[in-house]
Design a protein around this nucleic acid. Structure first.
Length: 801
DNA sequence: ATAGGTTGCATTTTT
DNA sequence: TGCAACCTAT
């Protein structure tokens, strides 16, 4: 009989007698309001905590976990808590640890993705993966999809990798595998998409890689296909807590369901019935702003139907903002249809009125913001670090930066190009990834000729041809490059040098060398450092610094005994594993960034924070400027004609407003330059949804139109350069044509159907047909997986073999 | 192999 | 307008 079996290692560290006396009941409930307490002590049925903005949901989560451990004697290893960021997970863990001590460490507090990776590493073989699989992020996905598009010879104008990936992501979020997608394709477009999905997924598998969406989907599929595995985890996790439930997608919902709902098909009917885990989800439908990424607001709206007997608790008391700000927020969000009524309230008093400003243009708006911050700091009321400026799109940050630089206002833009997205950082990580997982073709090909070592497209094509002929991985083909037909001796020598270097580095990894040491060796041995050092591009200076930073991150990681989301603390504490290179890579793949948000150090006055509204979610600032409140900007133009999208924009506005603690400013520009031409924008409809008496308009449109009326002919004049650009286009085409004609004709290989040829980028091919003669001769050549191409022989870099 | 020109693109992005 | 990716000419 299979009783509840803890996972290996659990008993080993289960503290025999926790010496430390836990917190008392009173301590755990101290300072909580009634509904918060109810949520903390709730037992049994699934619980939905509807937590309005600033209502103390993190407190509820941490206290509840502490309560479970210390009052209800739950084993910490039986707790699974899911948050949306690793940062939030780390904070939560720390806070629980403060309450109940070190034993809290063996809880699983992580993101969906980290938790799934942990499960998948253990069970990878069941799905036909190796446990050293790579995790592909957006950039890797794009590279891979681009390869697929070339493979399938898709018209790049009709089928863009980005659009295909978006579609694939949706499929995965809906748990639909390539077969499902193919089966249900309704038209040619969908068939093509499904074919791309199929090929993309095959390539991922060949690379022993999973993308972000796969992490969730594969775990769900694993639990579906292997009931005994599912049961293991169902038995293990007796308490499941999910934060930000409104942002879950269907796949994540399914995963929760597999763990926490009644299991109709328990694998062993004789087994003692496993009671479903106790589930608590926390969220706020009004703050659901990620539908565009697959989040499904229905998950939270339908919770009570999805989980029978569910109860819900409403947290409406806000501990963050003034009543004025909350009334404004309630009023705006009240315009959304079909939402469950919720009214935030505070006993902190009304506070300041909201300040409104209508600017002439975006410059004027930025100037107003800057001056207003100056005033606040001069008065001593606030420091720059208290202030945040929010906007709808990243492009809007530019004017603020320009004006802030000029006025000497210290600021920081959060978002934009991130550390781990920088080219040099990605290169370095690609090296590390291919060392751990040589099948990882995307990483391997990225660094094969970076820095330049004379392994160009042509050599790659030859090796790739060999890989396909012999059905081996690209890496295997590199090792056997001497067998590759058509490979120049020089290229072969280079490849052999590369292979030797990689094998040497791999032996370091196999010996368990620390991540930072491997990284430093990679950078030195590959010639990457020398390459940057010898470059005269001033940007490469920064690149070197970034790499130094990356090494520092790796070192810090290697020295942290509890590092690595994959490293089960259970194992680490038992001395089974130390964090290695693979763990470092996992951290880097799953953790967005080293903290971008400036921390609030009371010692210095800090800097103004600039960010998009999306990034602002979960944060709070004493002073908030909500800018660009114009129809077409915010709400965004693409949402104007669409009710659901408009409601999501409104939730975004709600999120923005509720970030403010004391002072809220709202502003808009009458004229705003949007890519080239200036446009006249009407005020945001959200402005009309604010109670009039709450807003102190410092300047209105009436006041400003009197001075300057937007000049429509001016707009046309601005439009002209575009037309000039169009003319340019044809002139350039003519020039290019002339240049082509002037160029001496290249020698045209005489070909016959059946001839074998080598093409610089398509690799090996067979001539299928010929048309035309002399300079106009065109050959149709079958390049195998690259497809049949029609090539004008005068230009095509083909060589008869 | 690489610079320079050309084209096309332009919401939001916790993982 | 500003950029990034791509292509092409050297």
């Amino acid at each position: 009989m299979s009783m509840s079996i803890p996972l290996p290692g659990l008993e080993a560290v289960a503290p025999a007698a926790p010496a430390r006396r836990g917190p008392s009941r009173e301590e755990l409930l101290e300072g909580l309001n009634e509904p918060q307490r109810a949520a903390v002590v709730h037992e049994g049925a699934p619980l939905l905590v509807v937590a309005g903005a600033g209502s103390g949901k993190t407190r509820v989560l941490t206290r509840r976990i502490a309560w479970l451990i210390s009052e209800r004697r739950a084993h910490p290893g039986s707790i699974l808590a899911i948050t949306f960021t690793n940062k939030a997970a780390a904070e939560m863990k720390e806070r629980v640890e403060d309450l109940v001590g070190k034993r809290a460490r063996i809880m699983w507090v992580s993101t969906f993705h980290s938790a799934c990776v942990r499960i998948l590493r253990k069970e990878a073989d069941k799905l036909g993966y190796k446990s050293n699989f790579s995790i592909y992020d957006a950039a890797d996905q794009k590279r891979l999809m681009t390869l697929v598009c070339n493979d399938l010879d898709l018209d790049p104008r009709r089928y863009q990798p980005g659009a295909l990936l978006h579609w694939v992501s949706n499929q995965k979020n809906e748990l639909r595998d390539p077969e499902d997608a193919t089966k249900d394709a309704r038209n040619h477009l969908e068939e093509t998409y499904a074919a791309a999905y199929t090929a993309y997924q095959r390539r991922l598998r060949e690379a022993n890689a999973l993308d972000f969406d796969d992490l969730i989907m594969s775990t769900v599929h694993l639990f579906q296909a292997f009931p005994e595995v599912r049961e293991t985890y169902r038995r293990r996790f007796r308490h499941v807590l999910i934060d930000e439930y409104q942002d879950t997608n269907h796949a994540q919902y399914a995963l929760i369901h597999q763990l926490c709902a009644d299991d109709p098909e328990q694998s062993d009917p004789d087994a003692e019935r496993v009671e479903p885990a106790e589930l608590m989800v926390v969220g706020d439908a009004d703050q659901s702003i990620y539908a565009f990424r697959g989040a499904n607001i229905r998950n939270i709206l339908d919770f009570e139907q999805d989980f029978p007997n569910a109860t819900s608790i409403l947290l409406e008391q806000n501990y963050r903002s003034t009543q004025t700000i909350l009334t404004a927020a309630n009023s705006v969000i009240g315009h959304n249809k079909g939402r469950k009524e919720k009214r935030l309230w505070s006993d902190a008093g009304d506070g300041e009125r909201i300040v409104g400003y209508v600017a002439d243009d975006e410059r004027d708006e930025a100037r107003f913001v800057s001056e207003e911050i100056d005033k606040l700091t001069d008065e001593g009321a606030h420091r720059p670090g208290d202030v945040a400026v929010f906007y709808r799109t990243n492009a809007q940050s530019r004017v603020f930066e320009e004006v802030f630089i000029r006025t000497g206002m210290p600021y920081k833009v959060v978002g934009g190009v991130r550390f781990y997205e920088r080219r040099e950082v990605r290169d370095a990580l690609a090296y590390l990834r291919m060392l751990v997982n040589p099948a990882d073709q995307v990483s391997l090909r990225r660094i094969l000729n970076t820095p330049k070592r004379g392994i160009g497209d042509r050599a790659v094509a030859c090796v790739n041809a060999l890989a396909e002929r012999d059905r081996i991985t690209f890496w295997e083909a590199l090792r056997r490059a001497q067998d590759a037909p058509g490979l120049a001796t020089r290229s072969l020598t280079q490849i052999q040098g590369f292979v030797a270097m990689v094998e040497e580095l791999q032996s370091m990894v196999d010996a368990g060398e620390r991540a930072d040491v491997v990284l430093e060796t990679v950078l030195a041995r590959s010639g990457y450092l020398t390459w940057l050092e010898e470059s005269d591009d001033p940007q490469d200076e920064t690149r070197l610094e970034n790499l130094a930073e990356l090494v520092a991150v790796a070192r810090e990681f290697a020295e942290d005994p509890l590092a690595g989301p994959s490293a089960d603390p259970t194992d680490v504490e038992a001395g089974i594993v130390a964090p290695g290179l693979a763990d470092f890579l996992e951290r880097v793949a799953l953790v967005a960034d080293t903290d971008q948000i400036p921390d609030d150090d009371p010692e210095d006055s800090g800097v103004v924070t600039l960010m998009t509204l999306h990034t602002a979610k979960g944060l709070e600032f004493p002073v908030v400027f909500l800018t660009g409140l114009e129809d077409g900007v915010f709400p965004h133009a693409r949402a104007l004609g669409d009710q659901p999208e408009l409601e999501e924009e409104r939730r975004l506005a709600y999120v923005g407003v509720t970030r403010a603690r004391e002072r809220l400013y709202i502003s808009r520009a009458v004229v705003r330059s949007a890519w080239g031409a200036p446009s006249h924008n009407p005020g945001s409809r959200f402005l009309d949804e604010l109670p009039v008496d709450l807003v102190d308009w410092r300047r209105t449109e009436a006041a400003q139109t009197r001075w300057s009326r937007p000049d429509l002919s001016g707009g046309q004049r601005f439009g002209e350069p575009t037309a000039a650009g169009r003319r340019n286009f044809s002139a350039a085409a003519v020039r290019a044509d002339a240049a082509a004609r002037a160029k001496p004709a290249r020698e045209i290989p005489s070909l016959e159907p059946g001839d074998r040829v080598l093409h610089d980028s398509f690799g090996l091919g067979t001539v299928v047909a010929l048309e035309g003669a002399g300079e106009k001769s065109v050959a149709s050549i079958d390049f195998g997986s690259e497809g049949v191409k029609r090539l004008l022989l005068r230009y095509a870099p083909v060589e008869k073999l």
